[in-house]
Structure formats: structure tokens, C-alpha cells
Design a protein around this nucleic acid. Structure first.
Lengths: 213, 213
DNA sequence: GTCTATAAGCAGATAGAC
DNA sequence: GTCTATCTGCTTATAGAC
């Protein structure tokens, strides 16, 4: 593994553990046992490192959507998708924690992020739309109900981990992620076919059991 | 108005406009036309300024809850409450944008915040519980439905402005705030009495009309 | 590709005069 | 309460040798 990849790998670890603003280039180089000069050989500046990490997030996110969102959407698949989505969010949690600041200081990153976000919200709306088509879900009465549902899903998803972290639990566990999936389920519950909900919920319960605190 | 208050007032303005990490003590003092020494006479350190601002947020937030959440909850009152709540969030938007970082570097602030958050979630749950009591809302079927509804409300509320900002709208308008209230309404819609919803929604529409883009 | 050495700038914070 | 002057420590980033 070349130094470029080692820099990305360690940066992700440090930023996730200590916050998006905490680890500077000097420290990254030092922990890695390379020189600052070397680091700057591989990345024009600090922002380029973050952009490199974001590229990883984007790739994982898009791959997940392509793999998992295949109609018809069965309840097990549905639950698995959301569980996996929280794993992705967890792996790049620094990003969501420091989002505002990161985008403010890097217009290029901001543009990439906005594109991904717009696509993601569309996809999430597409999922609920598909559920309606599959007969697994009742259509909301209001005009923009499906859109709004997709948007609320996105907002809960992207902020759940930050919420858990700032709430001060000493250790964030996999159960916290499963709880996050539950929060998203609750958005859809009033519209979901009870049998579908029950089957999806069962997947979560099983995951909980397999990861005792 | 003494310098202490002027420091708080300007800090709030700068942090809101430029982000929670942007404005340093040097710059605050400079813009204000006072010396750094004077600033440090009034505040032990930068964190103390942020804590001072948080005290303002907390006071406004609690006052709002006490003033507006009085049973029975009528639809107009209900809508007005959420509109006002977004005004408060907007006035202290720097805080929610930089929350993760701010709490990480100030344990005292983190403790205050967590206390307020816990109380707020309880209150939001209390509101939906009251709506059920008033007969304006149907009770969710699931065991923790009301709790979950309160929690989702909180997460949307505290993250809506950050969402709007990172989405890159050039100008964040009052209409964006009204849209945020709409997102929260949509969480409750499936359970709400249609007449109640219609009356509450009408307040929002009227607000939209009175603030043309 | 990797190193050493260091520039340049800004942050938070303090001492002590007035 | 307010000032001037300054210190310390940090950061990003670069120049140029190997």
C-alpha cells in the first residue's frame, strides 16, 4: 500500500475519532511516520485529503444504492439496506459531524456533496414510491407526501450519528445504529403494510439480539 | 450597553454569518473597535463567549415552550409555536451548524446542551401526547410511537437550518423556515385529525403569502 | 518519492500601564 | 474597564537536498 492510501486511511481514522477539524496535516504525517513534505507531495493541501475521503463515501454510497435497491423491495432487503446505509454513515461519520464547516471552506467539495445529496433524496423518494407500487405501502394523502417522506428520511439518516454522538453516550454501539434504522422505520410505519413492517422489524430485532451490549 | 453585551451581540452575528469556527477573538475585538485585552477582561476565553450565547438560546427556547405550549393545543397555536421555534433556531444557527465541534471542545457546554436537549425531547413528546389527549390526534399503534415521534421532530427541527444552508441556497429566506415547519407537520400528518391539520396548514400558507420571495 | 528545514500567518491568551 | 504590546504555540504550506 502506497503512502497516498496510508494517508487517506489514517486521516479517515483520525478525523472520525477526533472530529473533522481536529487532525492537522502535521499530525497525520507524524503518526504515519512520514514527513509533512511527503504528505504534500501526495495531496496539494488538506482539503484535497478530505475530498479524497469524500470520494470513498460517495463510491460506497452509490454502490449500496445500486446493489440493494432492486424492485420489488422485500422487507428483509429493505431492512438490510437501511442497516448497511448506517454502516456507511458510520464509516464516514466525521463528514456529517463537520459538514457545515467542510463545505464552507471548499467550494469544490460542496458542489460534489450537493450533487450526491440531491441524487440520494431522489433515490429515497424512489424507494417509498416503489413500496407503493409493490403494494407494501399506502400512498400518503397529501400532494407532496412521498417527496416529503424521502426528505425526512434523508435528514434523519444524515444526522442520526451526529445526534447519538452529541448526546454523549460514552460508546456508540451497533445497537445505536439499529435504533437509527428504527427511527426511519417509524417515519414510514403509518403507511406501511403491517405484515411488511413486521417482517422488516424482525430483521432489526434479530440484529439487536446478535449484538448484545 | 456595556462591552460585554456588545461582544455577545457581535459574536452571535459573526458566528451566524461565517460559521461557528470562523470568527476568532482577535477579529471580534477588532470589528468591535475594542482591544483583545478588553475582550478577555469580560470573558475568560473564547469558549466562555459561546457559553454566553448558548445561555441566550436556552433562555429563548425555554420561554417559548412555557409561553406557547398551553393545553388544549389549538391548531393556530400549534403552527405559531413551530414557526417561532424556527425563528429561535435561526437566530442561533451557528450553534447547530458547529454543534459537534463546539461540544467536543467544551465539556461544560456539552453538559448544558445535553440537559436542554433531553428536556426538549420530553416536551416535544409531551406536545404530541397532549394532542392525543385533546382528541386532535390518533395514537400511534406501536409501543414507543409517541416517543419516537417526539425524537424525530427534534432531529428534523435541530437540523433543518443546517440542511438548508449546506444545500446551497444563495439566500435562506423565511419561506425556508416555513418549509421546515411543513416537514415537521408531515411527521404528524398521518395521525392528525384532518380538520386540525387543515387549520394549522392554513396558518403556514398565510405566512408564505405574507412573505413573497 | 521522500526527506529536512523553515517560512508565513494566525490563533488564543496574558502582563502591566493607564 | 480599557488600553498597548507581546508571547507562545499552532497551523498550512513550500523550497530544495537526496
Amino acid at each position: 500500500m502506497g503512502n497516498r492510501d496510508r494517508i487517506l486511511e489514517l486521516s479517515l481514522k483520525l478525523l472520525n475519532e477526533e472530529g473533522a477539524q481536529a487532525a492537522g496535516t502535521t499530525r497525520i504525517a507524524q503518526v504515519l511516520g512520514i514527513s509533512p513534505g511527503n504528505l504534500y507531495y501526495h495531496f496539494r493541501n488538506r482539503e484535497a485529503i478530505v475530498r479524497g475521503l469524500f470520494a470513498g463515501l460517495e463510491a460506497e454510497f452509490r454502490a449500496m444504492m445500486v446493489d440493494d435497491v432492486v424492485p420489488p423491495i422485500l422487507p428483509e432487503r429493505f431492512a438490510a439496506f437501511y442497516l448497511r446505509s448506517f454502516d456507511v454513515a458510520w464509516n464516514y461519520r466525521f463528514f456529517f459531524g463537520g459538514l457545515h464547516h467542510l463545505l464552507r471552506q471548499d467550494e469544490e467539495l460542496a458542489a460534489s456533496y450537493r450533487q450526491l445529496q440531491a441524487w440520494a433524496i431522489d433515490e429515497l423518494e424512489g424507494i417509498v414510491r416503489q413500496l407503493v407500487k409493490d403494494g407494501s405501502m399506502e400512498k400518503p394523502r397529501s400532494k407532496n407526501g412521498l417527496r416529503s417522506l424521502g426528505l425526512n428520511t434523508w435528514i434523519i439518516w444524515m444526522n442520526w450519528i451526529r445526534f447519538v454522538q452529541i448526546s454523549g453516550r460514552d460508546q456508540v454501539t451497533r445497537d445505536d445504529m439499529i435504533e437509527g434504522v428504527g427511527q426511519i422505520f417509524d417515519l414510514l410505519v403509518p403507511y406501511l403494510d403491517p405484515a411488511f413492517e413486521k417482517a422488516a422489524r424482525r430483521v432489526l430485532t434479530r440484529e439487536l439480539r446478535s449484538n448484545p451490549t
